[in-house]
Design a protein around this nucleic acid. Structure first.
Length: 441
RNA sequence: GUGGCUGUAGAUCAGCGGUAGAUCCCUUGAUUGUGGUUCAAGUUGUCGCGGGUUCAAAUCCCGUCAGCCACCCCA
C-alpha cells in the first residue's frame, strides 16, 4: 500500500459526526446577529501581505512570524516591495475594513453592521485551543454612525449573548479602555519611562516585550514583572477627560443591559489597531488558551487603510469582536454538552430480490420528490437482513419493503423501526403522497 | 520559535529486551422476507518514520515527524 498522506500540522478534519455541532454554532450565531441588524459578508481567505502589516502592526508576532504566505513567487517576479505577496488571513477585521473601503460602503450607509464566519490562519505552534487553521465568528460595526458609546455596549452585549445562546455559562467578561490613539501613545511613553530603571533586572522575555509592545507587560505572566506592574497602580489616569467620559458611558450601557463585567486596567489586546474600548471573554478550564472571544474599538484603522470620508476622516468609527469557534466547542465540551447527534434519515427502501431494485430505485426518488430523506442499499442484491442492518445504521425511522407480494399487488410494506409495527399500503402516487403527509405529522 | 511528556489494530488503551494483546467497532453465522438485544466464530497491525546498540528491539539510545502541555502568542 502506498504511504498515507496526513493532514497538515495544526489543521483538523471536521468529520460528519462533528458537523451538527458546527451547524448549531453557525445557525445560532446567524439568528442572533440578524436580531442585532448585522449582515453577512465574505472576503477572500488570502490578501495582500501589506494589508496585515499596515493594520495589525509591523512588530506584532501575528504579522512577523505567523503569517502564512502563499503565492510568494510574486516576489520573485521582480517586485521591489518587500511586502509584495499574498498571505492567508490571520484575522477577519482587516479584510472587512479593506472591503469596506474598497466598495466605499460608508457612502451609502451611515452605519455598516457586518459579520463573517470562516477560517483564519496563523503559523503558530499548535496547542490545545490553538490551531494553524481555525474558525472565527466575527462582527464589525463601521461608519460615521459607529461612534456612539452605546454601540460599544451593544457590541459587548452581542458577544456575551452569543456565547450564552450557545449554551456556555461559565465565562468571564473583562473590559478596559486604552483611550484615543493619542492617549495610547502617551500611556506607552509613560509606561516605558516608569519601567526604565527596573526593566534591566527582569527576564529576557519581558525585555523583548518592553521593546516590541510595552502594553503586553500589563498582562504578563512573569511574576517579577507582575509585581512591578502592580506597584504602578494603573487605573484610568492615562485617559484624557474625553476618553474617560466615553468609557463611563460604555459601562453605563452595559449596566443598563444587565451585562456583568469586570474592569481590568491590565487588559490589553495584541493587535495594534485597538483604541478606546477593549474586551475579552475567557473561559476557565481551557488551559492556557482561555480567551474564547475578544474585541474592541479601532477607530483609526479605516483611515489608516486609505478609507474614510476625505472631508471628515476622523468621523469614521469602528468596533468589532471575534469568537473562536473551536474554543466554543471546547467550552461546550467542558460544560458537558454533547452535540454529536447522529444524523438520521426518514426512510430506507429494501428490495427483497435484485430484480426489484429498479422499482426500489424509482420509489426512492418518488419519496425524495416529496421532500423525504430516503436511501436504499446499493450493495447489489445483498441479503434482506443486511439491508435492514444498513437501514438501522442510518437511523431510518421507517423501512419500506418491496417483496414478492408487494410487487405482485403494487403495494409496499412499511415497518416502523421504533415500534416494530408493519402495515401494507397501496403503492400509487396518490397514496405515497398521503403516506408522506401522515409521516410528517 | 523554546522547554517537558507521549506516539502500539478504525477508536480507547495494556505490554516496556525473547518475535503482538484487551475492549469497542468491523465481518460471518445461529435466523435462505425483518434491524436494534443475545450467543458463537473470525480479521484487526510496515508497534509514527529513519538510524544505532544487542544473539534478539514495540521495549534501550540518537535523529526526525506528529500529538499533548506549558512558555510565547492569541480567538
Amino acid at each position: 500500500m502506498a504511504q498515507k498522506i496526513t493532514h497538515p500540522r495544526g489543521t483538523a478534519d471536521i468529520l460528519p459526526s462533528e458537523i451538527p455541532a458546527w451547524e448549531y454554532l453557525e445557525t445560532t450565531a446567524r439568528t442572533l446577529l440578524k436580531a442585532y441588524g448585522y449582515r453577512e459578508m465574505r472576503t477572500p481567505v488570502f490578501e495582500e501581505v501589506s494589508l496585515f502589516k499596515r493594520s495589525l502592526g509591523e512588530t506584532t508576532e501575528v504579522v512577523n512570524k505567523q503569517l502564512l504566505e502563499v503565492l510568494s513567487q510574486r516576489k520573485d517576479a521582480g517586485a521591489a516591495d518587500a511586502d509584495a505577496g499574498l498571505a492567508l488571513r490571520p484575522e477577519g477585521t482587516a479584510p472587512i475594513v479593506r472591503a469596506y473601503n474598497e466598495h466605499d460602503m460608508g457612502r451609502n450607509d451611515f452605519l455598516s453592521k457586518l459579520f463573517y464566519i470562516g477560517p483564519m490562519f496563523r503559523g503558530e505552534r499548535p496547542q490545545k485551543g490553538r490551531l494553524r487553521m481555525f474558525h472565527q465568528i466575527g462582527a464589525e460595526a463601521i461608519g460615521r454612525g459607529a461612534n456612539h458609546p452605546l454601540l460599544d455596549a451593544e457590541m459587548i452585549a452581542l458577544a456575551v449573548n452569543m456565547i450564552k445562546s450557545f449554551g456556555i455559562k461559565d465565562f468571564k467578561l473583562k473590559i478596559n479602555s486604552l483611550g484615543s490613539a493619542e492617549d495610547k501613545e502617551n500611556f506607552a511613553r509613560w509606561l516605558r519611562q516608569e519601567l526604565k530603571d527596573t526593566i534591566g533586572s527582569l527576564s529576557d522575555d519581558v525585555k523583548a516585550q518592553y521593546e516590541r509592545n510595552v502594553f503586553r507587560l500589563l498582562d504578563s505572566k512573569d511574576q517579577a514583572c507582575r509585581n512591578v506592574i502592580n506597584s504602578l497602580q494603573i487605573g484610568t489616569q492615562h485617559l484624557s477627560e474625553k476618553g474617560r467620559v466615553y468609557f463611563e458611558k460604555v459601562k453605563e450601557g452595559l449596566d443598563q443591559l444587565g451585562v456583568t463585567y469586570e474592569v481590568s486596567s491590565h487588559l490589553v489586546r495584541g493587535l495594534d489597531y485597538y483604541t478606546h474600548t477593549v474586551f475579552e471573554i475567557s473561559y476557565a478550564g481551557l488551559g492556557a488558551q482561555d480567551a474564547i472571544g475578544a474585541g474592541g474599538r479601532y477607530n483609526g484603522l479605516i483611515e489608516q487603510l486609505g478609507g474614510g470620508d476625505r472631508r471628515f476622516p476622523e468621523t469614521i468609527g469602528a468596533i468589532g469582536f471575534a469568537l473562536g469557534m473551536e474554543r466554543m466547542l471546547l467550552a461546550l465540551e467542558a460544560e458537558g454538552k454533547k452535540m454529536a447527534v447522529a444524523s438520521s434519515i426518514d426512510v430506507f427502501v429494501v428490495a427483497a430480490k435484485p430484480e426489484y431494485e429498479t422499482s426500489a430505485f424509482v420509489l426512492v426518488n418518488e419519496l425524495r420528490a416529496e421532500g423525504v430523506s430516503v436511501d436504499m442499499d446499493f450493495g447489489g442484491g445483498r441479503a434482506f437482513k443486511k439491508q435492514f442492518e444498513q437501514a438501522d445504521k442510518l437511523g431510518a425511522k421507517q423501512v419500506w419493503i418491496l417483496g414478492d407480494e408487494e410487487m405482485k399487488n403494487n403495494t409496499v410494506s412499511i415497518k416502523n423501526m421504533k415500534t416494530g409495527e408493519q402495515t401494507t399500503e397501496e403503492r400509487t402516487t396518490r397514496s405515497i403522497t398521503a403516506l408522506v403527509k401522515a409521516f410528517n405529522r
